[in-house]
Design a binder for these strands. Structure first.
Lengths: 177, 177
DNA sequence: CCTTAATTTCACTGTTTACAGAAATTACTG
DNA sequence: CAGTAATTTCTGTAAACAGTGAAATTAAGG
């Protein structure tokens, strides 16, 4: 499998952006490759196309599987695993957000809950307590809201997003004018 | 400045989460410290409180300033810079999102635009072209929407988020039922 | 200007992370 | 239950990054 200039650019850039998102470069590249590919690929094909070590591909795929971003597909008469990803951007986005929420937001909420419940908390100044409470509240509201969004199907989500602008304008006018 | 157990926990956790977000640990810790502090702090106070090198604080503050998350405050009769951050979670969130958008989304949009405009693009298969176009579209819509949100003041944003759930339910019912 | 405090730059060190390649394990097939 | 293909685990190395402390720079006050 040789990459065309366009797909190569796409894959490379996706890899770079991945690193900025705290995602391993190879992991992001594999995902990009599968996203553009019109069929499921074997680990060996990925290895050859990206020019990385076989073991690297193996580990990266394992991570993508854990994020549910990649699925295994079997092909009749071939015992190798073939890997594919959803071609639906919205679907991908939902999976990425869900994954990040689990790894980044939930631990924070837990710590905040613990702090709020701890006996030391009462000893803090009013301002400090209020700030920590507000932080917890904020993350909580945001999380609930994102859960709602994540439950939507692509078309509905699209409508909500497009409505968002209009509604926020309405509210703003109502509040200020 | 000695930290209480609660603030210490908060600062340490914020630092850890920072690293997962691709933010330097010290940078995140300083931000957390200023967030909980009830007054602006000097670089030396931060140094002492966090137990890190003075230069590290200097560099980290520079980064926070570039994100506009921290501002310099001057105090009469003191020539040192004092640093403070907004105590408004919503305000902070907007700044963080704006910063990340600039560093992560905009370069991606640019690359996608370049790919779409390149002469090689026409040579790609229909499916590939469609996927890249959809990706660009998606990021574009999401960006516009988030720009709208970022323009809102805290209370309005809160209302929009709370409305979000209701509206998405309405649309879902309308679409499916 | 000169002194001294504040701040930044820079070179170095320790730590973490990514990756390759070898070795080991798993699992299909006859 | 071989024999072989596929996959994973393990180990070492290279690269990236965070953080320190000394040296250099900047700037305020006399």
């Amino acid at each position: 499998m040789e990459l065309t200039p366009v797909t190569e650019q796409f894959v490379l850039h996706w890899g770079e952006m991945g690193t900025r998102w705290g995602v391993n470069r190879t992991v992001a590249q594999i995902h990009a490759l599968l996203y553009l590919s019109d069929r499921a690929l074997t680990a060996d094909e990925i290895t050859e196309t990206l020019g990385v070590a076989r073991s690297n591909v193996s580990n990266s795929i394992k991570e993508l599987l854990s994020w549910r971003l990649v699925k295994v597909a079997h092909i009749m008469g071939d015992r190798r695993d073939h890997f594919e990803t959803s071609k639906d951007v919205w679907e991908l986005f939902k999976l990425i957000v869900a994954g990040r929420k689990q790894k980044e937001i939930e631990p924070t909420l837990q710590i905040l809950d613990e702090l709020l419940a701890s006996s030391d908390f009462k000893k803090e100044s009013h301002e400090t307590r209020q700030r920590i409470e507000e932080t917890q509240q904020f993350i909580h509201v945001l999380t609930q809201w994102s859960d709602e969004m994540l439950r939507l199907d692509p078309e509905t989500l699209m409508k909500v997003l497009k409505l968002g602008a209009k509604i926020s304008n309405l509210i703003r006018r109502e509040t200020k004018g």
